[in-house]
Design a protein around this nucleic acid. Structure first.
Lengths: 169, 169
DNA sequence: CTGAACTTTCAAAAAATATTGAAAATAAAA
DNA sequence: TTTTATTTTCAATATTTTTTGAAAGTTCAG
């Protein structure tokens, strides 16, 4: 397989995976393209390679910049903006995970807290069951996120491998 | 807040969260409804409460049955089928995670292996960089899934809390 | 068997989401 | 300042995904 074909396959695979996990396909593809690019690339190059419009390219780049997983690069004597991807997978995986937790999980946790609070004093069988169920999800997710937070805020090589050793025993 | 309103809020919240993570809203809502239901419920009841069609209800139930996170219940002397949810969050969270890994992550891992294989011998600068990038994602995901597998195949109370204690130090 | 009760399927319609592209805005050069 | 290059916005359009509902299929009691 040629290197160009390999890159294209990577871009397509990444785009599909993104879609399945609620990440816009263009956003995932632009990210993939920057990951496989050796040099910083411009909006026009992205449009040409991925065959997407200027508007779409611009919005995708902005989202990736917001996530903090790609960077702008200024090239002397050139008015165009160029972009490069954060190549350390640990760094960007953590950023995406934290951002999604904050944006999508945290509000749900807040709702669950509210629902616990609102039904805490309900002493009917139904009320007690509901409280127990919500409490279960809330507590479980809290523990899970707590572990995830610790792992993510640690140094990649250290903690993840340490944990692996522990659970392998 | 009334218990009925609380249940409704839970159903809606669950539906939205599902959408953001690539799980169909109706599927998530049916799951939520079964989670908050004290008794087994029938297709007709689900249609009525969630205001969705018979076809949609049937497909959502089938998907949840496939995931193994809800069960059929036969009620003596009644031809209708009734359904109940697995109420142990640990059990169903693990099932969903494993199923999605298998369906969505594993095929991507396979592609990444192929891409590594296909570019392994490419000694150009570009080839080496691409190989390194793909290898990074592949190795990282492998380690991550390996840890996740171990946690998921363990007893909830034991391992998760044990890990939490370790990382809290 | 026959018919009633119930479930499943799937083509068509609706809804949600993503993408385009041209106009407006901005920034730099002349 | 004016011109030109580049970026940003957003209403309109296209695409994808979800949902509907009626017909076909199944099951089972009589």
């Amino acid at each position: 397989m040629e290197i160009q074909a390999a890159k294209q396959k990577f871009i397509n695979t990444w785009g599909s995976l993104g879609s399945e996990w609620g990440i816009n396909k263009s956003v995932a593809q632009v990210h993939a393209l920057l990951l496989v690019s050796t040099n910083p690339i411009s909006t026009d190059e992205i449009m040409e390679v991925l065959k997407i419009s200027r508007g779409n390219t611009n919005m995708s780049l902005r989202q990736l910049l917001d996530y903090g997983i790609i960077y702008k690069r200024v090239i002397a004597g050139d008015r165009k903006e160029y972009f490069v991807a954060e190549k350390d997978i640990w760094k960007w995986a953590v950023k995406i995970a934290m951002m999604r937790k904050q944006k999508e999980i945290d509000p749900v946790m807040h709702v669950l807290s509210d629902l616990k609070e609102a039904t805490k004093k309900n002493k009917t069988e139904e009320g007690k069951e509901f409280y127990a169920m919500v409490n279960d999800i809330h507590t479980f997710t809290e523990q899970f996120c707590s572990l995830a937070d610790k792992i993510m805020s640690s140094n990649r090589g250290e903690l993840l491998l340490k944990l692996l050793k522990i659970v392998m025993k």
